[in-house]
Amino acid sequence: MSYYLATQKEIVDWIRRLAAENRLYFPEKHGAASYRFTRVGPGSDIQFDHYTPTVVPPVKLLVPAREELLHFRTDADGKTEVQPSLDTSFRIIAGVRSCDLKGIFLMDLFFREGVPDAYYLARRENTAIIGYACNTPCDERAFCAAVDSLDHTEGADVYITPVKGGDLLVEVKTKLGEKLTDGVDWKPCEDGAARRIGAVTARPEPFGRTFPAALPEISKIVEKNYESPVWDKHVKRCFSCGTCNLVCPTCYCFDVADDLHLDVASGNRTRSWDGCMLPHFAEVGGGHNFRPEPAARQRHRVNRKFTYLPEKFEHGAACVGCGRCGRQCTSHIDIFDIVTDLIQEGAR
């Protein structure tokens, strides 16, 4: 682990150099007020300024909206050959905020557990991540501090923190990080750890929204309130459109579907994003739906983030507090509000 101090310009030039030789993604402005992780080209605008979390988290580069699992071809004798379709190409994701780093860290846990997921892990192993610290909350919907992801740096190969004086503190965290920063002429920084602490302590307090209960308590409260009017309250405005699932950095449920090409001999099997808020998520072939009501689906989603997955993976919360679900919900149903209501309901 080593530290450097660099100027904004030096970092941007470095990103451009990396992008010239690699597939590199960076949050780029898109639409009126949104950002997208976009492949950086010669004309790309690279700014480390303040931005609200991207529409879809950077984990899309590890779990794409649609990805081919298998491809097949049947020969003239009727024999079918099936092969996996694995993506092992190298990519760099830069400008990843701590909430999204935490999201990727959790996805690593989920996909490594039990039967490891070859597709995710092959991409992950071939992905370098350049993280970037937030010194101010991105907007009023963030609650990263409340779920312990504000200071998450694990998983980043290089982590950048803006420090006093306008310079950027560069923390090289892994061997891959060393490779990415090989040959840079930035100023080595002896007191990097102290400067990083300085930046952390200078942050506003509280940082973003905070829950009226501590994280370990919240798990118990959500679990205890399995039957609660809170579940009905928030879904009154719910469209079951699945946006909250699809934009979540830790949602990884998927659907699998086949496609036959027009030669009627070859085709593929793909998986695509799915979400437990979508009405037919838990419906079986015979037509029985195990979660027909939006309230039951909402309860499942919140429990996955605050009780089911945390318990299984022994981790505080599977919600990273990025605020995407509440920000992008057309009805602004916010998981923060649901959990807060549950806490207050529990206190009553």
């Binding site: 009126a32 997208r36 529409v55 879809v56 459109c241 946006t243 699809l246 695509s272 979400g275 979508l278």
Partner: peptide
């Protein structure tokens, strides 16, 4: 039977 919102999110559209 999913809403157009699903397509929008898959396409990373700004709402």
């Amino acid at each position: 039977p999913n809403a157009v919102c699903v397509d929008c999110k898959m396409n990373e559209n700004e709402c």
